[in-house]
Design a protein around this nucleic acid. Structure first.
Length: 977
DNA sequence: GGTCTCACG
DNA sequence: GACGTACGTGAGACCT
């Protein structure tokens, strides 16, 4: 099992298993969009030249793709379609069509002819026709083939071809390795394929210079077409559109929309340059193909083709993984072919396939070795010493590293060169936890202890940099085996520092993004759901392919991303904030926290009884039995059945029943609403906390081990999962009982230290608000002080209600204030809230300036920056939709504040272990809750440790406002907090 | 798998 | 002039 994604939000799986499985009946026709492919391959692959200097990266991508396609679809027909050089019929009625297209890059130009040569070398027909684009020919042949009863697959990712998708005509994107069917088209355009041209006619396309209707994008277009059926009906009914601006645009630009539709509509009546019947499979002329490939310097492909020829004389599947047979660890033989070593493996991968076939054909440039004896492992260690870098990945039987069993380790010392060392594999098919004396013996493996002894030297060698993806996971596993890995680099954290907020940072997602490569999905190796197996049951050949690839990809990502830290001035953020956190947080997770199981079980029991009572009451009040936990049923009972007001419906048409709605009803005297609120609170506590937490107690350590995600949030905060220990109840009396179940080990105390008002202090600091800074320096009650200043009331006359209002505004500032939000929070009229904000901004005029400057910066750069230089990307800041843009603007205000607080906390955490050690404290840091740290400390050391921790936290940043940290000590978390 | 609701900072 | 709203998270239950 891998943990590569564990630190981030789950990466979307782009590859559906079994996608694009060819029909294989021999009648299918594959129409390859040659022109489209050239551009995409050119931009996706690194530059590569022939010995004579001719650029060939797109040619290699194209050749790989064809090879893959031919191997996969066997005896079916493939034709490659190209644009003609000249203008086409569209320019006759719209001269500007594609007028803005820049000239192709110089490195691409010579590759056009080479790609036609490549097609011929593969003995595949080239289709092109003057006056027509490739897309028109594809449309034409798709129609002809379909009329002849043949299935058609269009190999392209061009959205302009999506209009052709229909029963019998599919698309396949060879670079993303993804089929495009009606669902994918709908995802892209918001309508079925047959309505795509209508949407495009409205939305236009700046790349092709299709004008469309100004102000209408794909989203709006899809909505309009869905409502009115098609373009003509929409234009005929344009007068009925509610939004005045939109109505006028549709009337003014009706003809432009019609022209746009003609531009995007493909002509499926082109005169076919070759008869359909000629598009059959032809036996490739291997010698011709080899000559061509050799002339380009594609040594590794040539080898593959030759191997296939020796085998059975034609391109076929069934090849075996080259490294699956343990090779002696001769480094020379393992060096990838120089000519195309820079190409990511299978950048031109074809359709999804069985694991056994993801082999020579898709991963041509790699040498993966299975290491089963100590000498072979030592050779890898030696190689790491030579290179000074070593990518490392561990495989385990669970995602909880504090308790998981180490199943194997993979290493990589150079791109394409990796190994897998199985350690705890059993014979495939072995049933877990069952004694079976007839079971086959486990495979040959180095004993874990011996392997660890060999690895320890290099993993702790200060001159060898260890690289991982989400290395915190691996760090824990090695720590449990007595190895403190250092120094380490983490490709996930580097990506997070470079592009946090722009996308996820799981390995698969980054491989797609940066390497145009789809790693073997975990589920392809271990299955999914009930049939899922643990990694120790995976056969070694599959384990090798998967695990070695992870180390390989990690190293490739690191090679690509690490230099950017310097280029983009982000080294300090990475080196001082995120990288040092790896061992610190790994140790926290490994420590875990002690939980009183009996206390939780007692609470669960108690809650069960009370929930049953409340449920009876609610059913009686409703006059019928129903599921209180179903918002849908509850809404219908309250508003349709009991008619307690009209109820407000959300966008899904369901009644809203959230606490604000129920509280309002309760205030009107409806007992049932209050009872439902009570039920909700208790049900939440029971299911999320008292029940779930008990199950998270590890049988191995007797403690609960959360996972802190280091690369998940948009602001630099950590998050906590499985279980989330950053949202343990604290506000209500019932909730506090749960917190009391978090206890110290015998002889120990829990110590909780939290920053006081850190975010508001940072607002004062960053916006340089003199009055606020003074108030903090004077140690005043900050909410009372702001109330006094904003409302002009002397502190002596302060009332709790006025202070409450000031507090709400202070919070609002941090959130990127809006009158609406504040009015809702305080239950006052929006006008009144706006007046408060106005008064606040007048009193603290520096704030307004600061907020404007942040928004301007965000608009210009697409990101904001914390005090310590961390970037937070906000993609929505340029959004055309005003609401989404406003949202992004509030994020832009909040992110530097929240993010700087997170940076400061990270600085404190990073300094903590050394500070504790220097003071002789044996306290262990257990949890971080954004502005709070929780420690477990021997009773006798508690007071001293509290002082040390406060000192580290308060000294974590030197600002114009003081940082204040407050400590509490107790037998349980509630007491300490 | 999406939506709603709610626990925390 | 319309839009949809306080920022950041994760988990469980329901429902399709």
């Amino acid at each position: 099992m891998t943990a590569s994604d564990a630190g981030t939000t789950a990466a979307t799986e782009t590859t559906a298993v079994g996608a694009a499985a060819p029909t294989g009946d021999g009648s299918g026709l594959y129409l390859v969009d040659g022109s489209g492919f050239i551009f995409r391959a050119f931009h996706a692959l690194p530059m590569l030249t022939r010995p004579d200097g001719t650029p060939v990266n797109a040619v290699l991508g194209f050749s790989n793709m064809l090879l893959k396609l031919l191997a996969d679809i066997k005896a079916e027909a493939v034709a490659v379609v190209f644009d003609s050089k000249r203008l086409n019929f569209r320019n006759e009625f719209y001269p500007d069509y594609k007028a803005h297209r820049p000239e192709p890059p110089e490195e691409l130009k010579p590759q056009f002819a080479l790609i036609r040569e490549a097609t011929e070398a593969f003995c595949l027909p080239c289709l092109e026709l003057e006056g027509y684009e490739a897309d028109d020919l594809i449309a034409t042949y798709a129609r002809l083939a379909q009329e002849a009863g043949r299935e058609v697959t269009i190999v392209s990712s061009d959205k302009d071809l999506m209009q052709l998708v229909r029963p019998g005509v599919g698309m396949f994107d060879p670079m993303k390795n993804k089929t495009i069917g009606p669902d994918e088209v709908f995802e892209k355009f918001g309508v079925a394929p047959d309505k795509v041209v209508d949407v495009q006619a409205l939305a236009g396309d700046s790349v092709d210079n299709v004008p469309g209707v100004p102000g209408i994008g794909v989203k709006t277009a899809a909505q309009l077409i869905t409502e009115y059926g098609d373009l003509e009906s929409l234009l005929a009914n344009a007068g009925k559109i509610k939004q005045p601006a939109r109505r006028q645009k549709l009337i003014d630009f009706a003809d432009q929309a019609r022209v746009s539709r003609r531009l995007v509509l493909l002509d499926d009546n082109a005169p076919p340059p070759k008869p359909l019947d000629e598009l059959r499979v032809r036996e490739p002329d291997h010698q011709k193909l080899i000559d061509f490939l050799r002339a380009q310097g594609f040594r590794s492909i040539v080898t593959r083709v030759e191997m296939e020829m020796q085998k059975d004389g034609r391109l076929a599947d069934g090849a075996t993984f080259p490294a699956a047979a343990p090779s002696a660890s001769s480094a020379a033989a393992a060096t990838p072919a120089a000519a195309d070593a820079a190409v990511p493996p299978s950048a031109a991968a074809g359709p999804e396939e069985r694991p056994a076939r993801r082999t020579v054909l898709t991963v041509p440039e790699v040498r993966y070795e299975l290491v089963q004896d100590a000498d072979a492992l030592r050779a890898w260690v030696d190689r790491a010493r030579e290179t000074g870098v070593l990518a490392v990945d561990t495989e385990t039987d669970s995602l909880t590293p504090a308790t998981a069993t180490l199943v194997g380790v993979s290493l990589s010392t150079a791109p394409g060169l990796a190994c897998y060392i199985p350690l705890a594999h059993v014979a495939p098919g072995t049933v877990a936890g069952q004694l079976d004396f007839d079971a086959p013996p486990p495979p040959v493996q180095i004993p874990t202890s011996e392997a660890m002894a060999i690895l320890k030297d290099v993993l702790e060698d200060p001159s060898v940099l260890k690289i991982g993806h989400n290395f915190k996971f691996d760090h824990q596993l090695f720590a449990r085996n007595g190895i403190r890995v250092a120094p380490v680099d983490d490709s996930m954290l580097i990506s997070y520092v470079l592009e946090g907020g722009a996308h996820g940072h799981g390995m698969d997602e980054l491989a797609e993004l940066h390497l145009a490569y789809t790693p073997i999905p975990f589920k392809e190796v271990c299955g999914t759901g009930k049939a899922q197996i643990t990694f120790d049951r995976v056969p070694l050949d599959k384990a090798l392919a998967y695990a070695a690839e992870d180390a390989d990809v990690t190293l490739r990502l690191w090679t690509l991303l690490k230099p950017r830290l310097v280029d983009e001035r982000l080294v300090t953020v990475y080196e001082t904030l995120d990288r040092p956190l790896i061992p610190v947080v790994a140790d926290m997770e490994r420590a875990g926290v002690h939980i009183d199981r009996q206390a939780l079980a007692g609470l669960s029991q108690d809650l069960s009884v009370r929930l049953a009572e409340i449920e009876k009451d609610v059913h009686a009040l409703a006059g019928q039995s129903f599921n209180i936990g179903s918002p849908k049923q509850l809404g219908e009972i309250l508003f349709d059945g009991l008619k307690l007001g009209t109820g407000k419906k959300g966008k899904t048409g369901a009644y809203s029943t959230d606490s604000s709605v129920l509280e309002e009803l309760a205030e009107q005297g409806h007992t049932i609403a209050q009872r439902v609120l009570d039920w909700r609170q208790l049900a939440k506590l029971k299911s999320t906390y008292t029940d779930a937490l008990q199950e998270k107690i590890s049988p191995v350590t007797g403690r609960v081990h959360t996972a802190f995600a280091l690369a998940a949030t948009n602001t630099g905060r950590l998050s906590s999962t499985d279980p989330n220990l950053q949202n343990i109840p604290v506000r209500t009396e019932e909730g506090k009982k749960i917190r009391r179940a978090f206890i110290a080990s015998p002889g120990h105390k829990l110590l909780s230290v939290d920053y006081s008002q850190i975010e508001l202090r940072l607002v004062a600091e960053m916006a340089n608000i003199q009055a606020l800074k003074d108030a903090f320096r004077d140690g005043l009650d900050i909410h009372a002080a702001t109330a006094a200043q904003v409302f002009g009331i002397p502190l002596e006359q302060m009332t709790p209600d006025i202070r409450r209002k000031a507090k709400a505004i202070n919070f609002g500032i941090i959130y990127g204030i809006s009158g609406f939000g504040l009015s809702r929070q305080l239950g006052i009229a929006p006008g009144e809230a706006n007046a408060f904000i106005k008064a606040y901004l007048e009193r603290f005029h520096e704030l307004k300036v600061w907020m404007e400057s942040i928004k301007t910066f965000a608009r210009q750069h697409g990101h904001v920056v914390t005090l310590f230089g961390r970037r937070c990307y906000m993609p929505g800041i340029q959004d055309k939709n005003a609401a989404r843009r406003a949202f992004a603007e509030r994020q832009a205000i909040n992110a530097p504040i929240q993010g700087t607080a997170a940076d400061i906390m990270k600085r404190a955490m990073n300094r903590m272990p050394a500070a504790l050690a220097a003071a002789g404290s044996s306290a262990r840091m257990l949890l971080q809750v954004h502005d709070e740290l929780l420690f477990e400390v021997p009773e006798a050391e508690a007071e001293d440790t509290a002082r040390i921790v406060r000192g580290v936290m308060e000294g974590a940043a030197q600002l114009g406002v003081p940082l204040v940290a407050e400590a509490g000590i107790g037998d349980n978390w509630e007491e300490a907090h």
